[in-house]
Design a binder for these strands. Structure first.
Length: 806
DNA sequence: CAGCAGGGGGCGT
DNA sequence: CGCCCCCTGCTGC
């Protein structure tokens, strides 16, 4: 179930509503066509509804006991999300994730009257209807809970936090402690803007948001004496101190434990307001995918803390079943963001840009190892920098990179703009939160739609009729379901007809690949590839890897691989990495060989180049580049740290998961990635990165055994050890004496059928292995080999691989 | 030296 | 997991 923060601008007054559901485990069937919802126990109604093509039988409030009823049609809904989704898809309401410019920086779901107003699609009464429905839902919840409407806060600190109602109806949370646990017996309605994971609300009649990590740097140093929430005013005597925060934390291993060392850090900025982090973390736990608010200026916790926070929250992320597709940017803010993210140098494009989704990615901690072999001498060095356009990023100073996804007017393709210049040190840390969110989202298959949603939503926010941009969600499956862009997130409509618990599997099996292909096609077919915003136009779109300055002080060298005829200079090899979509030259992008050394940089993607390389000496004494891909990265590149390898694999997996090329396998060709490249003619030094396979290198059998050389399977009765369990099993018969395969003509028995097969040849006289030089024949190949070795020169031949006769 | 048995690894399913 | 293969060691001639 979901909690939803609704902020209506229709009355120019903040109206914040918390939506909660009681039956958190209840499943619903959602009609993929009209979005009507049916309880699972009313599946017959659902079937009837489907049989009548949604026309005759509608699950209304009267028929379903639905709490939420559409104000424009009689359909009833079991969930507020469903109602909003219905309003969005059927009645063309627009739901926005609004980027707030206030200090809270909270994204709000906005039911807007602006969209499609010109087309008469908006019914003001609908807004009120939704709001009233939501209010009713809330009232019901309150009644069921019998809650007091008070939020109780507990902590090991006497005074934990202060909740202020902001001027926009959003609570600001200021913490006085380095540890925080928020508990509540019920949410105050409806002014409370605190959203928590619903799943924890009703189990113990309390809200637990312990999974939310609060950035320490923003903690309020001065303890507060009271708590205010909306109109509620609580003093400290009303705090529930029955549960000490420390015990709560200790009892929940997953809960964050903040150290005193970190706490000391927080004192450096006692006046920071953390509401944005708190609420964004809450949102992260809820249904709304947070998008970057570039206005953030406060500092957040250290990277590790944020990572843990994000990871933990990601584990609790359950956005799939009740997600709404949200327009990322409020239309009124588009211009502003355009200006800020695109810059004045690209004003021509602004008029064509209808939406901008700016996300922050962190340039991974890249530590590229390079091993150079010259005349038998091996030397290694670490590559420490990555260059994007004209901007160099030092790996040691891995910084967030703003990647703005621009959507053109036609909404046909996202335009990727990597702009490393837009971030400032002041907000880098803050942006880490969203960087991690983006990464986690990318890694979550549940949210695979997110990257394409902005594109789709752009159509909606443009006021275009969505019918013009319908796409079929699963052509490959021939299910015929049509999807209205911007109306789904993560799930297709046909997914809604699946029992929720099976939707994830359904989505993965039915849609994931097709979606990727669609995205790939969309990008490939696009002629709107724009240039990387970089002053260094020549280098735009190409990521370089720099060499660390040489010991002799010479400058590092850069190598551009965006050119097909690029060649490494003799003596030094370099590797670059072309990121498609960043290329200035759309022609070269379109004409480039598919699956060759390029990746599409999806919105918010983090890119990494897991590469090491070395040089080998050719016959003529010159140096031949030897490119070692990530396949050999881990096994051979000792110069590469494990953390880097992990990052590389992680990111590659991300890419692979999201944009699996399918038949367009991007794996190495021509052996350019293998050590066998040394045996090639060296004409193609271009790097080709296998996006589909990550760390195990199974796709390169020449470089990796299928089975490990280690012997993890150890015999308990002797010192024997084996690399496979089956071998240990066979070995154990040595101790147990169990030999199931018995010879019918003698007392011989063995543990293995093949051995019995060989044994039987004694009785049959079969000698299938015959010497090609004499009349010798034997029953075992190994015996023949010995014979050949003893009686015939090795050069004369070898043993037959198979019996020459029967 | 030949014959045979058995252990262990590789690979397809 | 089953099967096959390779290798090694033992035994007898």
């Amino acid at each position: 179930m979901s909690n939803l923060l609704v902020y209506s601008e229709s009355q120019m007054v903040s109206h914040t509503i918390c939506i909660q559901r009681v039956e958190e485990e209840e499943d619903y069937l959602t009609c993929g066509k009209c979005m009507s919802e049916f309880r699972l126990d009313r599946i017959t109604s659902f079937i009837k509804h489907k049989k009548q093509d949604c026309q005759e039988y509608v699950e209304t409030a009267a028929t379903s006991n639905a709490e939420l009823v559409c104000g424009s049609c009689p359909q009833g809904f079991m969930t507020a999300v469903g109602l909003l989704r219905h309003a969005q898809t059927i009645h063309k309401f627009k739901l926005f994730l609004q980027r707030s410019s206030d200090i809270t920086g909270i994204q709000k779901v906005t039911v807007s009257q602006e969209t499609d107003a010109a087309k008469g699609m908006i019914d003001q009464s609908m807004i009120h209807s939704i709001r009233q429905s939501l209010d009713r839902s809330l009232e019901r919840d309150d009644q069921l809970e019998n809650g007091s409407g008070e939020i109780l806060l507990t902590s090991n600190q006497p005074h934990v936090m202060d909740l202020h109602q902001s001027e926009r109806g959003i609570s600001n949370l200021q913490l006085a402690s380095n540890q925080c646990q928020i508990q509540t017996e019920s949410l105050s309605r409806p002014s409370s803007s605190v959203m928590v994971k619903h799943s924890n609300v009703y189990k113990n009649n309390e809200i637990n948001i312990s999974n939310i990590r609060l950035p320490l740097s923003n903690l309020q140093a001065n303890p507060v004496q009271g708590l205010s929430l909306g109109n509620k005013q609580l003093n400290k005597t009303q705090f529930d101190t029955r549960k000490d925060i420390s015990s709560i934390v200790n009892n929940q291993t997953s809960a964050p434990v903040l150290t005193s060392e970190n706490h000391a850090t927080t004192m450096t900025s006692p006046n920071e307001n953390i509401s944005s982090h708190v609420l964004s973390a809450i949102m992260k736990s809820g249904v709304i995918f947070p998008v970057l608010n570039k206005e953030f200026t406060s500092q957040s916790a250290s990277d590790s803390q944020v990572n843990q926070q994000s990871n933990h929250a990601a584990e609790n992320m359950n956005t799939q079943e009740n997600s709404l597709a949200l327009t990322d940017v409020h239309p009124r803010q588009v211009t502003q963001i355009n200006q800020s993210s695109i810059g004045s140098g690209d004003t021509a494009n602004q008029t064509n840009l209808l939406s901008v989704d700016t996300q922050v990615i962190k340039q991974p901690d890249v530590s590229f190892g390079m091993t150079t072999q010259t005349n038998g001498q091996t030397s290694s060095q670490i590559l420490t920098g990555v260059q994007i356009g004209s901007q160099r990023i030092e790996s040691q100073q891995a910084r967030p990179v703003l990647v703005s996804t621009l959507t053109d007017k036609q909404g046909t393709s996202p335009v990727l703009v990597a702009d490393v210049n837009k971030h400032s040190e002041s907000n880098n840390r803050d942006l880490e939160v969203y960087k991690e969110m983006a990464v986690n989202t990318l890694q979550s298959s549940d949210n695979i739609e997110l990257s394409s949603t902005p594109n789709m939503n752009s159509n909606v926010s443009a006021g275009e009729t969505s019918e013009n941009t319908n796409i079929s969600c699963c052509d490959s499956q021939k299910c015929g379901v049509t999807v209205i862009p911007g109306t789904h997130e993560g799930l297709k409509k046909c997914c809604n007809a699946v029992v929720p618990k099976k939707r994830k599997r359904h989505f993965e099996t039915k849609h994931t690949l097709s979606l990727r292909n669609k995205l790939m096609r969309r990008l490939s077919d696009s002629n709107t590839i724009r240039s990387c915003r970089s002053s260094d136009k020549k280098n735009s779109g190409t990521i370089f890897i720099d060499l660390e300055p040489n010991e002799d002080g010479t400058l590092s060298q850069k190598f551009n691989t965006s050119s097909d005829n690029m060649a490494f200079p003799a003596g030094v090899s370099g590797i670059g990495y072309e990121v498609s979509g960043l290329s200035r030259d759309s022609g070269s992008y379109l004409n480039r060989p598919k699956g060759k050394g390029s990746v599409i940089l999806p919105p918010g993607a983090v890119f990494s180049i897991p590469i090491s390389y070395s040089l080998s000496t050719q016959n003529d004494g010159s140096l031949r580049p030897l490119i070692i891909s990530k396949h050999t990265f881990q096994t051979e590149a000792s110069t590469v740290s494990q953390s880097t390898a992990y990052t590389a694999n992680k990111l590659t997996e991300t890419f692979s998961n999201r944009f699996k090329m399918g038949t367009e396998n991007v794996q190495a060709k021509k052996g350019a990635m293998d050590t066998s490249a040394a045996e090639n003619d060296g004409s193609d030094n271009r790097l080709e990165i296998d996006l589909n396979h990550s760390e195990d290198g199974e796709q390169n059998p020449s470089r990796k055994r299928r089975y490990p050389t280690s012997r993890p399977f150890k015999c308990e009765k002797c010192d024997s050890a084996f690399n496979q369990r089956i071998h240990l099993k066979k070995h154990m018969s040595k101790h147990t004496g169990v030999k199931p395969f018995k010879c019918q003509q003698c007392s011989y028995s063995t543990v293995e059928r093949s051995h019995l097969k060989v044994h039987i040849r004694i009785h049959t006289g079969e000698k299938p292995f015959k010497c090609t030089y004499c009349e010798y024949a034997t029953a075992q190949n190994s015996t023949l080999k010995i014979h050949l070795k003893r009686h015939h020169k090795p050069s004369q031949g070898a043993a037959n691989k198979s019996p020459t006769s029967v």
